[in-house]
Design a protein around this nucleic acid. Sequence first.
DNA 1: TCTATGATTAAGATATACTTAACTATAAAG
DNA 2: CTTTATAGTTAAGTATATCTTAATCATAGA
Lengths: 315, 315
Amino acid sequence: MSSNRLLPSLKSLLAFRYAAQSLSFKAAAEHLYVTQAAISQQIKTLEQALGVELFERHTRQVTLTTEGAYLFDYANKAFGLLEEGVKGVAEDSNPNTLVISAVPSFSNRWLVPRLGGFRIQEPEINLRLSPNSKLSTFLDTDLGVRLGEGVYKGLQSSLLFEEFLLPVCHPSLINDKEPIKKQLAKIPVITDTGPDMEHVWPIYQRFLDMYDMPINTQLHIDDSTALVEALLSRQGISMMRFSLVYEQIEKGQLVCPLPIYMKSRYDFYLVAPAHHFKRQKVMGFKRWIENEVKSIDHSWQEYTSNNPDFKEVTV
Amino acid sequence: MSSNRLLPSLKSLLAFRYAAQSLSFKAAAEHLYVTQAAISQQIKTLEQALGVELFERHTRQVTLTTEGAYLFDYANKAFGLLEEGVKGVAEDSNPNTLVISAVPSFSNRWLVPRLGGFRIQEPEINLRLSPNSKLSTFLDTDLGVRLGEGVYKGLQSSLLFEEFLLPVCHPSLINDKEPIKKQLAKIPVITDTGPDMEHVWPIYQRFLDMYDMPINTQLHIDDSTALVEALLSRQGISMMRFSLVYEQIEKGQLVCPLPIYMKSRYDFYLVAPAHHFKRQKVMGFKRWIENEVKSIDHSWQEYTSNNPDFKEVTV
DNA sequence: TCTATGATTAAGATATACTTAACTATAAAG
DNA sequence: CTTTATAGTTAAGTATATCTTAATCATAGA
């Protein structure tokens, strides 16, 4: 069977789409930069090919027949998909602008402070950063930074680093006199809404032998910068991603009062459609960030070797 | 912005679709009834328009680049939708063949025995009946008969008749001596898997004052013809749609031993895309079946007036 | 080494789609 | 009630996109 049998003139279908959308041949014509006459003829051709009336013609306006309404549904979706696919694959029209969509916690606490370095390394790249929790369609975004398991349908992902979680508080909240577990039981807990937080607190609790007690959550802060501020101002203890507090730990501004950590179920990934990774600007950014990220791994190595009794706890 | 900016040549996209599908320009050419040269040129045009290579050319074969693979995903879905829409809306190519998809219970017990009448009324229509529980795409089906609430996304529906459920068994299982509830408690229950059966049995149970007792389900039969056979051969009692047993009740082959019935939450509907209802053959069938269905309503009127203590029970 | 296959390219042929211009019908303005 | 402006239709001619033909390339398989 000929595919000409399957599909009538594609141009006529496109004309139909716009005509049906605006219920006006004139508007469709303007949209497609042709004359009304052209649209009129295309619609006529299409109707003849289908053997069905798609529009009811009234004076100075047209309306869809039930057939027209049925077809519009499909045509609109179909051309929408084509436009999306084409836009997603077409040559990067702004090779000097790099658009990154990153989860806010990582973006604000880690990425933003370091961007100066990237601008020095790639001065001709104009970087636009949008802190965003939702995975975009990647039509206007070059690259995403996401916290997850690294599996994103239809997308390629690249692990940035392995993430660890550990309890963190201000050093002045802890002393050498009392037993540490007893002290911690009195320190308020600050929670946030992270993807694996619900798994994390029970472990902390269990480690403190607080089996039945509900977590003492006086404070819930979702913004990680604000959360770190709260920790620095001695407001409590929280389970933190190492990547977001390792600098404070290195400086002694924050401490991990228990010799425990957990492997996070979720790590940070670079995510994008496969071909975005071939773009020069994306490759440059990836090279840069992968190098920067080494400092986190390095800090982690150092921290664990300085604290030999530090050990992993699991569920 | 011009839509020419949004979409490159649609023909080239279609050529790409087939070329990517078969990973062969030659095969795509055959599919589209043109020469390889035409496909080669179309692909080249498309690649130039997008500014991106879609295929890697090897000798005597081509493979998709990552960009090509990305685009194919969209193009394939898009043209699939167009084909589906076009096929669904195009003029009926077999105006003398009527394809009906009906739920098996209604089809087998009610429709099939009556089809002779339709063939006499519309002798030139070749009818194909497919007993089917799934709603098809209506690409090859003119009309569906469905049991439901009459709301089907993107489809038009037309109520055939209101449906009632009542307990039914063979008359010899019942006598005048013992209290009826006591007798019924001993009769095995035959169940089937219907959409509102779970609501129906508790009511029956409650009516028999069997509040806590589990239903005595010795027999479960999903085929309604077999179920009626089981009832006729005295194997138990079942909740039946009036439309499927009214003839047996009228003949006295089956009885409703309790003066109760329930309005079904689900009724029978004719279902199809709106424009299918304009087809001559569909209109003819609708006219015929709506007339036939009157016998059910009529029988119901008669039954309820002959049994004045018959009453509706609800949840 | 030779042959056959699948893709590419240029040039010309053809079909498709577009513009122009004259026409219809009617809503809205005067 | 007449006039004007608007939206769509149609026919004829033109422009353009798309195809075919035919020559060419590269190489897998005989």
